[in-house]
Design a protein around this nucleic acid. Structure first.
Length: 287
DNA sequence: CCAAGGCCTGAATG
DNA sequence: ACATTCAGGCCTT
């Protein structure tokens, strides 16, 4: 067996801080030594050495432990930008989130920022989610599709979600009625899954790609928000020449095509590293 | 097909 | 102190 470079082993080891502070999850906080997070009907606790505990016995592969990180990192290392980001933010992982929570989270995220998204989601949990005690601490789980589907618009609005409140209710109805079936979407290929999930009001290109990447195992999804556009303009002007300010559906699709060709089947991982890098450069706050 | 404006909130700026 | 501007993604016109 060939010995692999020392660094590669290092980069493959998960780094919780980098992972949680990368804009993919919102309901996480840290006390003295442990991270606690809400993932659907579970409270997750992760200690300093990376052991994961839950309030239930349900076991989920939250960290995508079966991903072949070495292969993925090699695959996306197409240029200096990505290589540096991998080096500087080593241990950053894509998580496998609870699909319904992820779905609602990114509908809430539209036209918003991380702090506000977090506040809104905390309100949603406190107002609609089940209260549980875990580790002598109080948590509110993420509400079920049924609860949000049958909530009143006024109640939702109190959470600070504004015009997105209607989207939340309709989206939850579609999940509750099984019109949107996450298990099915996991089995679909990327384009098909995206087509289906885009039928939900409040889910456009970017939100769809976030849901697909962060909860439905579509690692080729590459969410293009203002930050990513800025990054591509700045660092990849010759590869992905961007003409206009606003991305139409067609332009989004064409750009994704180029990106997929360039970064390959794990493009979503490249996106996460580049996003993390740029936000850190601008010293943007996380949670 | 594309461009422009409105939706809602909170932070930043004047 | 208050008013204005801006960031942010989706939908309708």
């Amino acid at each position: 067996m060939k010995s692999q470079p020392f660094e590669m082993v290092d980069y493959c080891k998960i780094n919780l801080e980098n992972t949680i502070n990368s804009g993919q999850v919102f309901l996480w906080k840290k006390d003295q030594e442990n991270w606690y997070g809400i993932n659907g009907q579970n409270v997750l606790k992760i200690n300093e050495i990376g052991e994961i505990k839950s309030n239930t016995r349900k076991k989920i592969d939250f960290f995508r432990e079966k991903d072949n990180l070495e292969e993925i990192l090699k695959s996306i290392s197409k240029d200096k930008m990505v290589k540096n980001a991998i080096k500087n933010y080593s241990g950053l992982r894509i998580l496998r989130q609870d699909p319904f929570q992820c779905f609602i989270s990114f509908i809430v995220s539209s036209n918003s920022n991380i702090q506000k998204i977090k506040r809104c989601l905390e309100n949603i949990c406190e107002n609609f989610g089940e209260k549980v005690i875990f580790d002598n601490k109080e948590f509110f789980l993420f509400p079920t599709p049924k609860i949000l589907a049958t909530a009143s618009i006024q109640e939702i609005k109190k959470c600070g979600t504004g015009y997105r409140s209607n989207f939340i209710i309709t989206a939850s109805e579609m999940v509750y009625s099984n019109k949107i079936n996450f298990e099915l979407l996991k089995k679909c290929e990327y384009y098909k899954a995206k087509e289906i999930i885009s039928q939900v009001p409040g889910v456009g290109n970017k939100v769809a790609d976030c849901i697909l990447l962060f909860s439905l195992d579509k690692l080729e999804a590459f969410p293009l928000d203002r930050w990513m556009i800025r990054i591509l303009e700045q660092y990849y002007p010759s590869i992905f020449e961007l003409s206009t300010k606003t991305l139409t559906h067609k332009q989004y699709a064409m750009l994704h095509e180029k990106i997929a060709n360039y970064f390959g089947p794990y493009a979503g991982y490249a996106q996460q590293f580049l996003f993390k890098m740029e936000r850190e450069n601008y010293e943007k706050k996380w949670l």
